[in-house]
Amino acid sequence: MKDKKNLYRAKRAFTLLEVIISITLFMVLIIFVYKTLDQTKHSNIIFEKQTKNIIQSNKLYDIFFEDIIESTSTIIISYDKDKNARVKFTSNNTFHNPYYSHITYLISSNNKLVRIESKDEFKFADTSYEFYDNSYIDILLEDIEYFDIKKDKAQYVFAIKQKDKKRVLYSTYLIK
Rank of each mutant, 00 (worst) to 15 (best):
E66V: 06
D80H: 09
A85V: 05
I69Q: 08
N110V: 14
D138N: 14
T40F: 06
V168R: 13
D120A: 08
L169K: 14
M27G: 10
A154F: 10
N53V: 05
T51S: 14
Y136S: 12
L140M: 11
K5Q: 12
D62H: 09
K41A: 06
R9E: 13
K163L: 14
Y8S: 13
I144F: 02
T90C: 04
K119F: 11
P98G: 03
I107W: 00
K83D: 15
D126E: 15
Q162L: 15
T172W: 05
T40S: 06
D67E: 10
N110K: 10
K176S: 13
I55G: 03
S57A: 11
K112P: 06
F131H: 06
Y146D: 09
V168E: 14
R167M: 14
I55F: 13
K35A: 09
K153R: 10
H102I: 03
S43K: 07
K153P: 00
E70N: 12
T104W: 01
Q50Y: 11
R115Y: 05
L113V: 01
I103G: 01
N92Y: 09
I107Y: 00
T74K: 12
I20Q: 09
F124R: 11
N93V: 00
Y99L: 12
I30D: 01
L60F: 05
R115G: 01
V28E: 07
Q50R: 14
F89D: 01
R9G: 04
S108E: 03
Y146G: 03
Y170D: 03
Y156T: 01
A125T: 15
Y156I: 00
I30Q: 07
L169N: 14
L29Y: 03
I63M: 05
I20A: 08
E48I: 07
S101Y: 07
T72W: 04
I144W: 00
T51M: 12
H42M: 08
Y34Q: 07
Q50L: 12
N111G: 02
Y136G: 02
K153F: 06
E117Y: 03
K165S: 11
K83E: 15
T24I: 05
D67S: 10
S57L: 01
E121Q: 08
F14A: 03
